[in-house]
Simulated scan of single mutants.
Amino acid sequence: MKKTISINISGILFHIEEDGYTALKNYLDAINQHFSHYEGNQEIITDIENRIAEIFLSNLKNNKQVITADNVSNLIQKMGTIADFKAIEQDMGTEEPQTEESGNDFYKYVTPPEQNAGKGYKKLTRLVNGKILGGVCAGFAHYFSIDPLWARLITILLLFSGGLHFNGLHLPFFSEGFEIDTAIGWWTIIAYILLWIILPVSYDKPEDKNIKKLYRNPDDRVLGGVGSGLSAYFDIDVIWVRLAFVGLTFAGGSGFVLYFILWIITPMAKSITERIEMKGGAITLSNIETTIQQNLSTENTKEESTSKKTIARSFSVFR
């Protein structure tokens, strides 16, 4: 029998073992102390706590109600510690003999086990926790290990696509040519409704951080950030994405329609963790700090360019 403690993380109540609580408290205290000097540190801590809550929720399955010390250890292994990337920054190219100390064992880096090992076959379900309408697209996305946004985009394009016309088909028992007209949009609606009915419901919140997610980039946008978000997703220069949209727009207007649809269905990368997911990185403390520093350098560059424009305008008065 072990003593449990009730804690509130990201507005969710968890019951955690006492030794797990001690380890988690030390971990969060180290995070708070490290990020306390950053501007907007409360938002950073909130993002980290949201991520911790997601991982803990994924552990509470099959009527399990308590977070164990092993769950906390796995969390630390997955997200990393402050000591991990501090050691990398201080000594990038040298290898030092490892000396184990009892007081520092908590901050040792341990490579997490392979997440896909031992998994059985996937089952196609409707994901209620990731749904917008019925969870069908989210279920297909999880089954094929892709971002749900692509499944929704394909569904929307099929919904508003035209029809198919088959003329002069020679079928048995028909002396003359047989014509078939069908509307893909209506078949898409019928297929979605049938899948909504026949697919079993799943209330799980699957977590596969190997899936790269598409977001609109708020830091490098001309209109809605769709182009820069796609460039981050496909790891290409943003100029080629924008030229593709412009070319498709002048080639019949499809570029404008596609951009507008992506603008609606693609979420904006507002938090630090979403910015990391946009670039396909794992949500670790090291990546969080790197993203914060990149955002600070971007803001400084914008402030410098704005000040340069202001000075140039003031001098243009004397010309």
Rank of each mutant, 00 (worst) to 15 (best):
A138R: 00
R275P: 00
F178Y: 15
V241K: 03
R319P: 02
I239S: 13
I52C: 05
L133E: 13
A141F: 04
F318Q: 05
W187I: 12
L223D: 00
Y121M: 09
E274H: 01
T111Q: 08
K279F: 01
K108L: 06
E17M: 10
I82H: 06
P206M: 10
P172M: 03
Y259C: 05
I239G: 06
L230F: 09
F160M: 08
L296V: 10
T249N: 07
G185Y: 13
L124C: 03
L127C: 03
D91E: 12
G103W: 08
P200Q: 03
N63M: 07
W240N: 06
I48E: 01
D220I: 08
V66L: 07
T182K: 15
N50F: 02
V238E: 15
A117P: 01
T155P: 04
D70C: 10
W263R: 01
N300E: 11
F14L: 09
F245R: 02
T266R: 05
L195C: 10
Q293P: 00
K3R: 14
I239A: 12
G255V: 07
I283F: 04
E101Y: 14
R242K: 04
I146M: 13
Y259V: 02
F166Q: 03
E179G: 03
I261G: 09
A312I: 07
K212L: 06
L285H: 07
Q77D: 07
R51H: 11
N71C: 12
P218N: 03
N287H: 10
E89W: 10
N50Q: 09
T81A: 05
L158G: 00
E49K: 07
I48T: 06
N104F: 14
A191S: 15
T310P: 01
F140R: 02
A282N: 15
I48P: 10
T249M: 05
E303S: 12
E49T: 03
G93H: 06
L75R: 02
V72Q: 05
Y107D: 09
L149D: 06
K212H: 14
K270D: 15
L230I: 05
L258H: 01
K25I: 05
L230N: 02
T291K: 09
S6Q: 12
K213F: 12
G162P: 00
G134W: 06
A151T: 14
F174A: 11
L164F: 09
K308A: 13
E43K: 08
G227C: 15
N104A: 10
E277G: 00
I283V: 13
T155A: 15
D181G: 02
I276D: 15
Q77K: 12
A141I: 05
E49D: 09
T306W: 08
F14E: 03
D204K: 10
V110L: 10
Y107H: 05
A232R: 04
I5L: 14
T284P: 11
E207W: 10
T94Q: 14
A69E: 13
N300R: 15
L133F: 14
P112M: 02
F250A: 11
L243G: 00
Q77V: 00
I5S: 06
S73Y: 07
V136E: 04
D181L: 10
L214R: 07
G93E: 12
L158F: 15
I82K: 11
D204Y: 00
F315P: 00
G134I: 01
